[in-house]
Design a protein around this nucleic acid. Structure first.
Length: 478
DNA sequence: ATGTAC
């Protein structure tokens, strides 16, 4: 149940693209919102969530919000919060979201728009047939039994590649080398496993998509070269998550934590977001399950990449190499400096991407001097971006994750029909392969903030730098 | 986001 709506917290402009919410009441730290005035106009009610997150036990430095902030379950989408593990810091499933491990993968083709030529149509038709999408079951590959299912949860992309669904080099270009080590498969309940089993290698629905894109502008040639992209080049962007498996894990663990919270003496506004200390049986159970789902999400994107590569090879003789794969819905145990001392933190990024700076030891060797690639899926018919981490990046090295919704799904569907939208996009030279007309209309570009403004605010706030802008040529949607 | 509600 929602409490009475109170006035949104007061924002003070610290400098351009940086606002502050002073700690009041139960807030343990300030709120820091990276945005422009224009972007804030669409974010008013989610500022209360930024203040709510600031009350979490053990939270350090600030409750952060990225320029694409919008209303979410408990935490705002576009929120970043870190808690100090040794100081009773908590982990919250609401700080990760229902779509655990949702993220983006970018593949670069060995051709440009001109050399691909009319084969684009065959590629789109091939993808239309090869990419499972929409709600419900169906994936490109079904694990054969319990053993294989558990190896996906433990091994992520690494297992998918071992199994023949990719190349060894892919793993170098995946966050965490394609798998996190701390997956605890025993914490993944039977219902979650069942839901996940038949959905390995599927897009899902809503804002998830697979797009054939073209590199439209390169802003940073050195970084683009290191990432493997150049002007005019054909790319494929895949945005998807962990399907029913992640949803079920979030549901299960919110329930467990909700029951346990009072035992730890934790009270939160509106009974959400549910949380328990990282160092508690419930906290450890969630993090173990979440890590298993993180691996599942990566395997999902790996399987979809394999299916996409097959289509490009058969329809156009084109090869795709992985640029990067990064999630924007995860909690991670990381070491960051707080008040001049290194602390072990549980960093929640919900609708926020990690953006390690140049020189960070966890980056792949060939990207270490460049900074971590960040992949920003835009809205249909506009543009997507490739960014990079910068030295001194704020918010525990995080940045924006997308355009950010501005209109409800219902409102969006009222503005345009799916058929009208497809006609409009095709007029602009964008091929559309939808699964449902309703789903397409809900994703109309007007339903989102201006992704260029979000990227400009993120860069202006010192969170990242722009490497390239990509425009869509073909969209595959659920 | 989600077998779009227990």
């Amino acid at each position: 149940m929602n409490a009475t709506r109170t006035a949104p917290p007061h924002l003070v402009e610290v400098r351009r693209y940086r606002y502050r919410i002073e700690p009041r009441g139960a807030m343990r730290v300030p709120g820091v919102v990276f945005a422009s005035r224009e972007l804030l106009a669409d974010a008013e009610q989610s500022l209360a969530q930024v203040a709510g997150v600031a009350t979490l036990p053990g939270i350090v430095t600030a409750s952060y919000a990225m320029p694409d902030i919008h209303w979410g379950y408990g935490f705002p989408i576009g929120g970043v919060a870190a808690s100090d593990v040794a100081d009773g810091g908590v982990v919250s499933p609401g700080g990760v979201g229902f779509d655990i491990s949702c993220g983006v993968r970018l593949l670069a083709a060995d051709c440009d728009r001109r050399t691909l030529g009319p084969a684009l149509r065959q590629v789109m038709d091939g993808l239309d047939r090869a990419i499972p999408r929409g709600a419900g079951p169906g994936g490109v590959w079904r694990p054969s039994g319990t053993g294989e299912r558990e190896r996906i949860l433990r091994g992520g992309s690494r297992y998918a590649v071992q199994r023949g669904f990719g190349e060894e080099r892919d793993l170098v270009r995946c966050e965490d080398g394609g798998a996190v080590a701390d997956a605890e498969v025993t914490e993944v309940g039977e219902r979650a496993r069942e839901r996940g089993l038949g959905q390995v290698g599927s897009l899902g629905s809503a804002n998830h998509f697979l797009e054939v894109q073209q590199v439209d502008e390169v802003h940073d040639t050195a970084a683009a070269t290191a990432f493997g992209i150049a002007p005019g080049q054909i790319c494929v962007m895949i945005h998807c998550g962990s399907r029913g498996l992640g949803h079920q894990i979030c549901t299960d663990h919110v329930r467990l934590m909700d029951r346990a919270m009072t035992r730890y003496g934790i009270t939160v506004p509106d009974r959400q977001p549910a949380c328990t200390p990282v160092e508690s049986p419930e906290g450890e159970a969630y993090l173990g399950a979440m890590a298993a789902v993180a691996n599942y999400g990566r395997a999902n994107r790996q399987l979809l990449s394999d299916a996409t590569r097959r289509v490009f090879r058969q329809a156009a003789g084109v090869r795709l190499s992985l640029v990067y794969d990064v999630s924007h819905n995860l909690a991670k145990l990381e070491t960051h400096e707080v008040d001049g001392a290194p602390r072990r933190l549980c960093v929640h990024r919900k609708g926020a991407a990690r953006a390690f700076p140049p020189g960070h030891p966890d980056l792949p060797d060939d990207l270490r001097s460049t900074g971590e690639p960040v992949l920003i899926p835009g809205t249909m018919g506009t543009a997507s971006y490739v960014l990079a981490g910068v030295p001194g990046g704020d918010a525990f090295h995080s940045t924006c994750h997308g355009a950010g919704r501005r209109m409800s799904r219902h409102e969006a569907a009222r503005t345009v029909t799916g058929r009208e939208l497809r006609a409009r996009l095709e007029q602009h030279g964008i091929a559309v392969r939808p699964r449902s007309w309703r789903g397409l209309s809900e994703e109309t570009p007007e339903a989102y903030k201006d992704v260029a403004a979000v990227v400009a605010a993120s860069e202006g706030a010192g969170l990242c730098r722009t490497v390239a802008r990509l425009v869509p040529l073909g969209v595959v949607k659920g």
